[in-house]
Design a protein around this nucleic acid. Structure first.
Lengths: 244, 244
DNA sequence: GTGGTCCAATGGTCCAACCAATTTCTGCAT
DNA sequence: ATGCAGAAATTGGTTGGACCATTGGACCAC
């Protein structure tokens, strides 16, 4: 017997049902992000459930960033909803903590390499031209400002994720990038943070233009490795300075 | 008199305060994942807030995957908590269609390979023994039930993610695993789905036990490749059957 | 042991208020 | 009419109390 043939019975799932009904409502009314959805009291009455249950459901959506509640005003849609959304709550310990940054880099290393390889496989001529444009902008910003510009750098990488044909790359890395950003602004005392990664942007591009997935993957790995080195240097420096 | 002994009345953000207090409690008691935390009624009484407020707070933690509630039993810690956790709730508009599943597989391929490699680098003897145990259970389930058991298979992979030392692997892949589960409920007519992946579980383990990161990475890639093939076969079959 | 029954503990839901922030309306002075 | 301060209505946030459904252990008869 296959235990999968006996799915666990589910007698109650009130708040889940509320959310499902709410998805249906949003679609039926074609609600756009920013619009207000019915008050908790109305929802409770219409769905024939307690207001508490409605609140628990909305609390879940609020935690997922799908909705925003304003006391005295109402509850507002914050993002598009669809019947089969995939929720990926990521939690990592510590903010500027070295370990968590290193952990995000391990994830990014895996995804960046894969995205670069896929990009090299799938890029059209137009895609390659677009990436070249972002690369030029980044390189020019690097020369005029004499240092890595996180803004233009990010644009370049995003172009690669987009061309990879898989939107998940951009979304996942974007979530972690946000975390990285605050720290990027004021690096850990490493003056030329990210400097070493500069040349690899062009080598990645050249591999993509040459339709060389393995090369693109290798160059992406080298790029992340330089960032990891910078991070380790910064951590060592920080450790020294905190030893009074 | 110590003014710290006066519980400051925050007019707003009650449930946030509850979570902060809960973080303090978990650290003070050194609660490990899997352990039970106080009942809602006790928390409400101790923190001098309503039980509903406690519930809203716990609902948020449940949504973040930090905690699991079992009716009639209690609320259990599911992950380590720290005062300065960073949450990145990421919701993706997915679907049960072939394309979405393929996209999640591309992400999983990247992460699975990296996790296997890191695991091979970092595994202690105890870790290796634990993975061997999960592997045995899985192989036995395979033989007795003559087919891949998603439950035991998942346990094996989770063990690898855990040993990798980076909780993000488990978190991200777990979210995508959930999506796959839905799909498994509605099988695409491929009877022996996942069958081909079976032998690679042992080869991955052997590479890990031999502390061979590159080998582990290669075997993990082969495993994912078999799943991709199964998926493609299922999609082709579905396409045929839908052509009336 | 095995299988039942009972019972206390616990999360899930409900109700009916009241509080706090916000928005809307009202009415008066200009 | 206009502007604006204050009242009133609206809405999310909180409270306390009650009951239901599930769980898991204790106890008992067989």
């Amino acid at each position: 017997m296959d235990q999968n043939s006996l799915p666990p019975i589910q007698t109650t799932a009130r708040d889940d049902a509320v959310l499902k009904a709410l998805v249906g409502f949003v679609r039926a009314e074609a609600l756009q992000p920013g619009e207000r959805l019915p008050t908790e009291r109305i929802l409770a009455e219409r769905l024939k459930v307690s207001r508490n249950t409605v609140r628990e459901a909305l609390t879940r959506w609020e935690g997922l960033g799908l909705v925003e509640r304003r006391q005295g005003s109402g509850t507002y849609l914050k993002a598009a909803v669809s019947p089969d959304m995939l929720h990926m709550p990521l939690t990592l310990a510590g903010g500027n903590d070295f370990t968590s940054l290193m952990q995000t880099l391990e994830i990014r290393r895996a995804l960046e390499a894969e995205a670069a390889a896929l990009c090299a496989e799938r890029a059209s001529q137009a895609d390659i031209a677009e990436i070249a444009r972002k690369l030029d902008i980044m390189e020019q910003a690097f020369r005029t400002r004499e240092g890595m510009s996180s803004e233009e750098d990010w644009e370049f990488h995003q172009a690669i994720y987009r061309v990879s044909g898989n939107p998940l790359f951009e979304q996942i890395i974007a979530a972690m990038h946000e975390l990285f950003h605050r720290f990027w602004e004021h690096p850990l005392g490493v003056r030329d943070f990210g400097h070493a990664s500069f040349p690899y942007h062009r080598t990645i591009y050249e591999c993509i233009a040459a339709r060389d997935p393995q090369g693109a993957r290798a160059e992406a790995l080298k790029l992340i490795a330089t960032v990891e080195d910078d991070l380790k240097r910064g951590a060592a420096k920080l450790k020294l300075s905190s030893q009074t």
